[in-house]
Write a protein that binds this DNA or RNA. Structure first.
Lengths: 298, 298
DNA sequence: CGTCGTGATACCGAATTGCTATCAGGGGTC
DNA sequence: GACCCCTGATAGCAATTCGGTATCACGACG
């Protein structure tokens, strides 16, 4: 069976007339007769009742008409689905992100924008800290990740810097340091400090320590922990927190953040993916995310 | 797009190798390359990543493979459905029947047998008395009917006699006439009679009356009614019922039926259909019903 | 009883399809 | 590094299929 035969069959069934159907197909009537006959021979069933008044569908013909119409429609849609898949408007996308970034506009706007641009892409969001993200990317369990730092092999991975964050100080609203809009590093010398742990975000920790060293101050770090743990400990009054500015979207009303002059924007947030990944969905996502930044910049 | 291209595409996707796919399709490799290329050009999308190691599906190709497999399966099934429709093993069948026949093995066995033979046929059963059945057949609302008598135009309708029924006497179990196994028409001369109405089954009524006339007896018919009404009136002791033997399957334990020598088998039960009806399902049904009778006769 | 319109058939040219031979190019081997 | 072997792509030719024209058989209609 050939698709041409199904097309001709549907046209003939609609016209109930070989000549008119042939005209609408822009072929001659004998050619149509032959194709219909071939179809009937293959299926082994008469599809039309021919008469000098025209051609009427048989019961079997009516059955085939229903099927053929659906099939032809299905084929057209399959072609369109294939095109959309190639354009990255369809498929699956697994995105990891540092849980610290949840609520960050970088993440939420990227995702919601891409959802609008490619509604048929099934997006899976997976909260992970940096190291597991890298591993998940390597293991093909994740297609892209929003993560801090990128101690990465440029041959294995590609990335785009999404934002640059600095270390900030977090204190309770009623803390003495909360009165000033900007702090200097000397202000922290005598404070009990709660910092994001070295094992969690090594780059961040090292850059903070470097700032203290440069100022010849020995910081009194009483606790290392994850960013969110630091926030809640600060809230209990345990000390002064040092966290990434990326956390500003997750701050509670009881806390305030203050910049420190000597803390330079050091930690970057990057969108990372496998360099070898040629997935259309992924590159469509990267393009959308990049476009968002450009729009914002205007 | 042509079906050949989809077939070739699926084979190539499965083999992940143009040469092997071509071999399995029993064509040469360049012919396959050309068809795949034509398909890719039409859709406007690369379906394979060619390499000296073979051909791997692209994302778009995987999308199309899923669709193409389903479509090809659908086409094969459509052909089979069409064949089954032509063979009368699929479709719709609306069968009318005299409600007196409900429970009659003639009806129940025919239907259940045909259900087994053609499970995909949607059967609709419509209880109707004779005259509405004829009208429903004419109005194309019904495809066939089981009915009493056939005062029919042989050019318009065709039929097959399914059984021949005689008039019987129905009396309560404790009635004096119930003691004898066979009655003579003289026994009914002094009895109040309840007979199926002339307007309901004219042929039946006339044949009963003819039997009385032949015996020079004037029957005392105290009530004419439908068969089932007659049965319930007899049960109240109102009189002696005269009904068709077709009712024996609907008799209650309180009643007994007795043959009357002079009542000859007169009323036939026929399966009737439109002579012009070429429906495969209908003729398949007729064939099945007829076959049942033959099997039973052996 | 002829005319009209229906679909079927016969035959021929054109397009499509398939085949053989050959090419370009990436791995693997010595 | 030169070679060999495999991959798929390309070119040119043969076979098949498809479409077009001319014509036929047949039933409806006037």
């Amino acid at each position: 069976m050939e698709l041409r035969q199904l097309r001709y069959f549907v046209a003939t069934a609609e016209a109930q007339h070989f000549r008119r159907a042939a005209a609408s197909l822009r072929i001659a009537q004998p050619a149509l007769s032959r194709q219909i006959k071939a179809l009937e021979t293959e299926i082994g069933v008469a599809l039309f009742e021919r008469s000098p008044q025209g051609a009427k569908l048989t019961e079997a013909g009516r059955s085939l008409l229903i099927d053929a119409t659906r099939i032809m429609n299905d084929i057209a849609e399959a072609a369109e689905r294939t095109r959309r898949t190639a354009r990255g408007q369809r498929g699956r996308l697994r995105i990891a992100f540092s849980d610290v970034l949840s609520g960050h506009p970088l993440l939420t706007r990227s995702i919601s924008r891409f959802r609008r641009a490619a509604p048929d892409v099934e997006i899976t969001l997976l909260p992970m800290v940096t190291t597991p993200q890298i591993e998940a990317l390597r293991a093909l369990q994740v297609d892209a990740g929003f993560l801090f730092h990128r101690p990465l092999d440029a041959r294995e991975f590609a990335w785009r810097e999404m934002s640059r964050e600095a270390a900030l100080v977090v204190v309770p609203r009623n803390h003495p340091l909360a009165r000033r809009r900007t702090l200097r590093i000397e202000d922290l010398g005598d404070q009990p400090l709660l910092c994001v742990g070295e094992h969690i975000n090594p780059g961040f920790y090292r850059s903070v320590l470097a700032a203290f060293t440069a100022a010849s101050i020995t910081p009194r770090i009483v606790q290392q922990a994850g960013s969110l743990v630091v926030l809640s400990l600060v809230e209990t009054g345990m000390g002064v927190g040092i966290v990434s500015s990326a956390l500003r979207w997750r701050i509670t009303p009881q806390l305030v953040m203050r910049p420190v002059e000597e803390f330079l924007p050091s930690t970057s947030v990057d969108l990372v993916w496998r360099r070898s990944d040629r997935s259309a969905v992924l590159h469509s996502f990267i393009a959308t995310v990049t476009a968002r930044k450009e729009n914002k910049a205007r």
